[in-house]
Design a protein around this nucleic acid. Sequence first.
DNA 1: CGCAGCCTTGACAAATGTCAACAAACGTGG
DNA 2: CCACGTTTGTTGACATTTGTCAAGGCTGCG
Lengths: 232, 232
Amino acid sequence: MPDSAFAEIRNLDLFAQMTDENFAALMRGAYVQNFPAQIDLISEGDPSDFLHVVLSGSVDLFSTWNGRDTSLATVRPIATFILAATVKDAPYLMSARTLEKSRIALIPSQDVRAIFDVDGNFARAVVTELAQSYRTVVKSQKDLKLRTSLERLANYVLRQQKRSGEVSSFFLECEKRRLASVLGMTPENLSRAFKGLVPYGVQVEGTRVTILDQGELERFAKPNPLIDDTSV
Amino acid sequence: MPDSAFAEIRNLDLFAQMTDENFAALMRGAYVQNFPAQIDLISEGDPSDFLHVVLSGSVDLFSTWNGRDTSLATVRPIATFILAATVKDAPYLMSARTLEKSRIALIPSQDVRAIFDVDGNFARAVVTELAQSYRTVVKSQKDLKLRTSLERLANYVLRQQKRSGEVSSFFLECEKRRLASVLGMTPENLSRAFKGLVPYGVQVEGTRVTILDQGELERFAKPNPLIDDTSV
DNA sequence: CGCAGCCTTGACAAATGTCAACAAACGTGG
DNA sequence: CCACGTTTGTTGACATTTGTCAAGGCTGCG
């Protein structure tokens, strides 16, 4: 593994507090690989052989059932995914594919579990990471069950605006068909939902979103920190 | 705290592997309380002062937004809840209320975090618990996003049947209005959904559910271990 | 009893999905 | 750099799913 990737991973919260010795042991069997876009990385149901770390690019976590499929999350650098499956030595619950050209580190799951068993600091870091992931899914669950698709979109627009630095105009960072899936609706419904936000001062041209009336949009969306804030 | 409750808690996976000394420290500030039915235990947004352990009875975890509310999970003995909020020292994402008369142990969150910092075995047990919780929510998310309400109900019926020991007739263990909320629908829709399962050999009288044609129901429900199995 | 809450049912409305058509954007190979 | 085909996004018409409102029956409990 190149030193640069090594350092990037070492600086992750998940690995920052462990001993040099244990980190080295973890990296011994690890390797970094470059993937083109739209490549399947893992398939739900497979045993969790590797903990994945996205170093660059982005990864879609999705699931299928009975011919349908849905996007559950996007992983962006620098972050890990399928940590829960790794520590539980259980099959993946989600599939993963690259959304774009991506560089991904693969750490053998059995090494993760072995180090986890002997390194208390690492175990504590895993807890923090898992607690964060858990709370993220719970928030997403609330979003899905308590809001209509129009409300979910309105709040998504506000969240993206915040990510872009509170500006009044910004770009969607993913395909609309995928955004629809993330928000739990069809592409057609998303297309109409964007139209449905026009009365609240939201304008969309291609991937550019412009908020003409912040107050009106917020009055409609009613964003809530316990659903929409990533830091809570 | 009475010895019996003490022993019950000690035997939980979460606390079984920690040292006697640390367990004693954890229990020093803890207490057990009896609550009647329908009592609010915690409110979403509140700081996480206590880790809760349900010793008997049952607890509903729910959330509200903009005048709507939804049940997210049921906690039954013996299990803890809001562990993620406790370890992250973050506000509760869900509210909790007793569904019936319940006995609940309250362990100060700051003690949990303190012991967590010094006891590696406890930290590892927390990981297992959180990973389990995380995977449960992910499965629920897939259930919600990939299935219609009729399909969710059909699979719920099959899961309950399994819990009851694979018998052909069993009882629902919660109010139908709450079941509707858990499954993400209205009580009226649930009422009609039960009717919609009649063609697949499901009969409902009050809280008694009878499966007349196991094969037909399974062909319709298409249960999937990665969504419906609690052990995976 | 009588009230309150739950469950059910009917009639209707709103939200969302499906299918088909077409336009726009994108990528690839010539 | 262009032509081509593929994919994505949009729109309309329509079907299905789900929610809402109102009413009535049932049950449990004071």
